[in-house]
Amino acid sequence: MGKIRTPYLLLLPGFGFLFTFFILPIINLAQTSTQTRVSGGDTGQYEQTLRFTNYLDAFVENKEQFGRSFLYAIIATVLALAIAYPLAYAIAFKAGKYKNLLLVLVVAPFFTSFLLRTIAWKQILGEEGFVVPTLRSLGIISESTTLTSTSFAVVMGMTYNFLPFMTLPLFASIDRIDPRTLEASGDLYANGLTTFRRVTLPLSMPGVVAGTLLTFIPAAGDYVNAAILGNPNTKMLGNVIESRYFKIVDYPTAAALSFTLMAAILILVTLYIRKAGTEELV
């Protein structure tokens, strides 16, 4: 009897935690999302009226930020993948004795605050940094172009901040590939590019899927990068929710937006996993 109960007992702390800090807030958020303002009441006073059109209103009002959130997240994910794949490949196959050192370096940025690192990008891309003067002297950008407070800066910040989340699962996946299967591919008349397409990439798909999800999901809900590196025209949904909640004290709209964002991410991720063929994931 006791043996049967043990696993459940072990699960208990986890369940308790999830229930208190995830399920309860979600229920609370769901309730808030259909409330309306008490007429004549104070700021922040809302009553439950089951007004589901809150969702429609919130979406229509902010569809621009909605689109931007997903657009930025997709660009950042693609860029992160493009940077992280060669990096992870090199660490797994070419680094030799420096493998562990390089892995530590990938994780090293986590030792400083996320916020600080994002602010650092503001300086890197600022007028006094070396990027802007260099690009200007090379004639790549015009004298009047700045890089701070642009959508470019926001996407760059996101790409940078989520890079380790892309690199680590990719590395784990590529590192597991037996290099002899790559030799076998060459032996069986596949050149380097074909070997990559037919063997390396398919075998690293679990890492690609995991990495893109770990990057895309938080990126779509991110607001720090847009707040620090962007301008009013680069606002993402995260920024809208933040200002609705803390500045305008419009809890129902903030809640409705949160749910819509969650649903949109869920749908996109489901479609993506279907497309990416997850039988290889297990």
Binding site: D178, R180, T181, E183, A184, S185, D187, L188, V199, P202, L203, E280
Partner: peptide
């Protein structure tokens, strides 16, 4: 063509 020591079949 080579028959590799650990066979090196493509697992996918």
């Amino acid at each position: 063509n080579t028959v590799f020591q650990n066979y090196a079949l493509f697992p996918h």
